[in-house]
Design a protein around this nucleic acid. Sequence first.
DNA 1: CTTTGTGCCACATATAATTCGGTAAATTCT
DNA 2: AGAATTTACCGAATTATATGTGGCACAAAG
Lengths: 160, 160
Amino acid sequence: MDNSIKVKFDKIDRKILEILQGNAKITNAQLSKDIGLSPAPTLERVKKLEQSGIIKSYHAKLDPEKIGLGVSTFVLVGLIGHNKSNIDAFMKEINQIPEVIECHHITGTGDFILKIISKDINSYQKLMLEQVSEIKEVDSMQSMVILSTFKDSKVLPIPA
Amino acid sequence: MDNSIKVKFDKIDRKILEILQGNAKITNAQLSKDIGLSPAPTLERVKKLEQSGIIKSYHAKLDPEKIGLGVSTFVLVGLIGHNKSNIDAFMKEINQIPEVIECHHITGTGDFILKIISKDINSYQKLMLEQVSEIKEVDSMQSMVILSTFKDSKVLPIPA
DNA sequence: CTTTGTGCCACATATAATTCGGTAAATTCT
DNA sequence: AGAATTTACCGAATTATATGTGGCACAAAG
C-alpha cells in the first residue's frame, strides 16, 4: 500500500510543480528554460516526480457552461449511521453517479459534502430525487447552489 | 466579453473531451486511434475545442499529502453586506491568498464557500485568524475539515 | 445537377521528446 | 583528508510526435 507520505524534492522541483500545475501542456524545452536547466535533466526530474506519485495525473479543464452544464452545487449529506459498512455502501453508490464529481467525509454540520454538476435545475432535481436520496444510507440533504465561481485554482500552495 | 454560451460539438468531440479530461498527456496519435480517426483531423478537432474555449486549460494534479499539505477544509463565509462593492472587495482579498483554492458564491446557509488547503492544523488556524478573518467584509465563518476524500473526479458528465 | 463547404486521409516536414556518453560536483566510506 | 561512489548535469544524436499540405469524398446549399 502506498501511504502517501511526504517525499523529498528541492527548490527546482517545486518550481517544476508550480509550472505544471498551471500549465501541463508546456514543452519540456520551454520548461527547462523557465527553471534554468537543459532539457535532459528537466525531463528526468519530471519523470521522477511522476514515478514518486507527487504528480498523480494530467487533466484538461473544460468550461462547464459551454458543454451545457449550467448548475453546480454543494450538498451536505447526513447518513443514518456512521459505521464503516454504512459509509462503504454510501461511497459505492456515490461513485456510480458521474454527476457527483467530489465526495468528502467531513467534520461539522453534515457527515459528507458532495460537489454535483448537472445540466439545469430540472435535471439536478431529478438527480437528487431519483439517485442521491434513493441511497438508503442517506438521512438528510442540504443543497447549496453555486451562483458564481470567483476562484477555482488548480495550483496548490506548496509549503516551503 | 465572452459570455460562455453553449458551443456545438458532435459525438466524436465528446469522446475527445472525455479522454482529455481523464488524461491530458495522451499523444495525438493514440487519441486518434481511440476515437477512430487519423491524426490530422484529430488534432484539428482538439485545436478547435481549445480555440472555442470548451477546453480552457491543462493542469497537473499533485498528491497533496506528498507535498506536505495535510489539511483541507471547506469554509462557509457570511459577509456583512451583499452589495457589489463589498463582494468585490472580498473577492480581491481572497484572490491574494494562495491557500484558498476555490471560492464560490452560493445560496443557502452562508454567502460563500471556500476550499482551503494548508500544511497542518496550526498553519490552518494561523491562516484563518491572520488572513481570512482579517478581511473586513467577513462576518461569520464555519469550518468543515475534510477527514478523507472518497471521490475527486476531474471528468465532468457531458450531457447528451 | 452543380457548387460550395466540411471533414477526412496519406504523406511530407518540422518540432519536440528522449537517449547516450561523458564530466563535474557532491556524498559516503575508509 | 583522500579515494570511491553516487548524483546531477550538459551537449549532441536519435527517435517519436506534432503539424502542415494536397487531394478526395460526401453532404448541404443554391
